[in-house]
C-alpha cells in the first residue's frame, strides 16, 4: 500500500513542480465545465423539459459530472502515460518492478491536481444543490454517493480497457479523445434514450450514464438504475482484468 501511496506523492510533486501549468490546468478545467453549463442553459432556454427532465434535474446531473470528472481526470494521465510508454517501447522497466502491473497502469503516473478541483467544487456543489431546492434524504444522499463511486470505477476501468488496444495494435489510438466524445452523452437525460437503448447502454456503454444515475437518485428519487450500474461496474472490472491479462500475453514490448 505504501508503494501505491508513493505514486500519489510523486504525482503531486510533479504537479507542483510546474506551477504555471497547474494553475492553467485548474482554470482550463473550470472553463470546460463553464462551457457545458452554458450549453445546457442554452438548451433549456428553448424548452422547459427534456423528456420529463427539468432544468433543475439536468443541473444536478451537471454537478455530478463535474465531481466525477475531477476524480477520473487524476487517473487519465497515468493510463495515457502507460500507453505512450508501451507505444514507444519503453514500458518494460515498469513491468519488472515488484508492483501489480494493473495498478502501474492506473496509478503510476497519477496527477492528483484534479482532486484539488474536487475540493473547490464539492462545497460549491452542496450550496448549488440547496439553491436548486434539492434536499435529498439520507437514503438519497448515500445512494447518490454510491452511484458516484460506481461511476468513477466504471469510467477508469473502461478508459483503461480501451487504452489496452494500443498494446496489441502498436498504434497510438486517440482513446482519451474518443472517451471524452462518448462522455458527452452524459449530458442527456437517460429517459431520452428510450427503454431498449437504455438497457443496451447499461450493458455495453455504461460510461454514458455515470453522472445521470447519481442525479436520478438525488434529484428525482429514482433508484432503479442503481443495481444495474453496480452490475455494469463489476462487469467492466472483470473485462479489464481479462483484457489486461490477454494483452500482456500478446504484448512484445517493441513499440510501434
Amino acid at each position: 500500500m505504501k508503494k501505491y501511496l508513493l505514486f500519489f506523492r510523486l504525482g503531486l510533486a510533479v504537479e507542483l513542480a510546474y506551477p504555471v501549468d497547474f494553475i492553467g490546468y485548474v482554470f482550463t478545467t473550470l472553463f470546460v465545465h463553464l462551457t457545458r453549463f452554458l450549453f445546457l442553459n442554452g438548451v433549456f432556454d428553448l424548452t422547459s423539459t427534456l423528456e420529463g427532465w427539468t432544468r433543475r434535474d439536468v443541473m444536478v446531473a451537471f454537478i455530478f459530472s463535474v465531481l466525477l470528472s475531477s476524480v477520473v481526470d487524476s487517473f487519465t494521465p497515468s493510463i495515457r502515460t502507460f500507453v505512450r510508454y508501451a507505444h514507444t517501447g519503453r514500458l518494460e522497466p515498469y513491468l519488472v518492478q515488484p508492483l501489480d502491473a494493473r495498478w502501474v497502469m492506473i496509478a503510476r503516473w497519477i496527477r492528483p491536481g484534479s482532486l484539488f478541483i474536487f475540493a473547490i467544487i464539492a462545497p460549491i456543489a452542496m450550496l448549488t444543490l440547496s439553491n436548486l431546492n434539492v434536499h435529498p434524504t439520507l437514503l438519497q444522499a448515500v445512494g447518490g454517493l454510491f452511484a458516484l463511486v460506481i461511476g468513477a470505477i466504471v469510467n477508469i476501468a473502461v478508459m483503461a480497457t480501451w487504452s489496452l488496444t494500443t498494446l496489441v495494435s502498436k498504434r497510438d489510438l486517440p482513446t482519451e479523445f474518443i472517451f471524452r466524445q462518448v462522455m458527452r452523452l452524459n449530458q442527456l437525460p437517460p429517459s431520452l434514450f428510450g427503454y431498449k437503448a437504455l438497457t443496451a447502454l447499461v450493458i455495453f456503454l455504461p460510461i454514458v450514464l455515470t453522472s445521470t444515475v447519481p442525479a436520478m437518485v438525488v434529484a428525482r428519487g429514482e433508484y432503479f438504475l442503481l443495481a444495474p450500474m453496480l452490475g455494469a461496474a463489476v462487469l467492466v472490472m472483470i473485462l479489464f482484468m481479462i483484457s489486461f491479462r490477454m494483452t500482456m500475453r500478446v504484448f512484445d514490448g517493441s513499440g510501434g
Binding site: G24, Y25, T28, T29, L38, F39, F177
Partner: peptide
C-alpha cells in the same frame, strides 16, 4: 516557454468545441 502544456491542449479542444 512552459514545457508542459497539457492544459493548453484541453484549452484548445474545449475552445474549439465551444
Amino acid at each position: 516557454w512552459l514545457v508542459r502544456t497539457d492544459f493548453a491542449l484541453s484549452l484548445l479542444t474545449t475552445s474549439a468545441a465551444f
